[in-house]
Amino acid sequence: MDKRKVILDVDTGSDDAVAIISAVLSKNIEVLGIATVNGNRCVEYTTENTLRVVEMLGVSETVPVVRGCAYPLVATIKRKKPGIPRGHYYQHAEEYKTSGKSIHGDFLDMFPPSTIKEANLNAVSWYIKTLMAAEDESITLIPVGPLTNLAHVFQVEPRTVKKVKEIIYMGGGHLLGNTRPAAEYNVWVDPEAAQIVLESGVRNFIWVPLNATHAAYLTKSDAERIRSIGTKPAEVVAELIEQRIIGYSNYQKVEAPDAAPIHDALCIAAIHDPSVLTDIHHCYAEVDCGGSSCDGETIFDINPGSFEYDKKTPNSYVALGADREKFVNILVGILEGAK
């Protein structure tokens, strides 16, 4: 089988790190490059963290890292979201560092500082160059942070849209939020970007929202099973899962005890086996960009009303559930396969 050609767009990020590791090690995926973006941390940090992961995997020759946008489209000029970009001045940084209970942390401390560099070309120009050189509908995009880079790419060069086979996006939530009651973090950071990408005319837009990623939580015993594989990447993944379990126990408990979602990695698992995503709806979706309490809310019209004028053409797929056992087995399979 031909490998799926994939570009990752990350704000690394502990769960992003697991996504990168599983994508690079997967035998079904060819990673063409990794773009970084402002998100979990400022783009300087997410780029450095991404380089650390790529260096650990030893693929810096074949997988370029390109630095993306430092600011969301409009959220920061509105001055309504203080704390973005999250840098060393992030208000809880000290507390997080000393208590060791953060979900992400500024840097992925299990790795030494990187000795490799990102590419000289910025992410937006790199995307345009790479996509324009590709066949139509040949590239899978897996963005797992705010959609800033891709929004700019489609604004700057709309001819790139038809090169995209599909977008599998970790973001949003159906009546479920995390950073705000109504909004999931990636979309909340840059709602305008999400709306632009959603409405770009891209052929298959697949949402992997919190509803799915929370269903696919991993536990301490899953981490142990992964560690027992015995490779360095497996050890790293196990450690990242455990770090997230501590963070989630402190801030955001999930349904099982001693467990945490590894949001971004679920998108990679979906490439291996689409049936890891469940409860999929083909529906009209929209992102609230109103700038108030619901800024960044994703609205999935899965039960359209009976009024004809309310009915809109479906523009995306949303997975509201996931098969957690399958997810664990896919992760283990990828890590075992790379042994």
């Binding site: 946008c69 430092a70 489209l73 910025n122 992410a123 937006v124 120009s125 800033t148 700019h152 700057v156």
Partner: peptide
């Protein structure tokens, strides 16, 4: 100013 703003955002250098 769309072109100029996006160029600055895509590559602040």
């Amino acid at each position: 100013l769309t072109n100029i703003a996006i160029a600055m955002r895509a590559d602040p250098r």
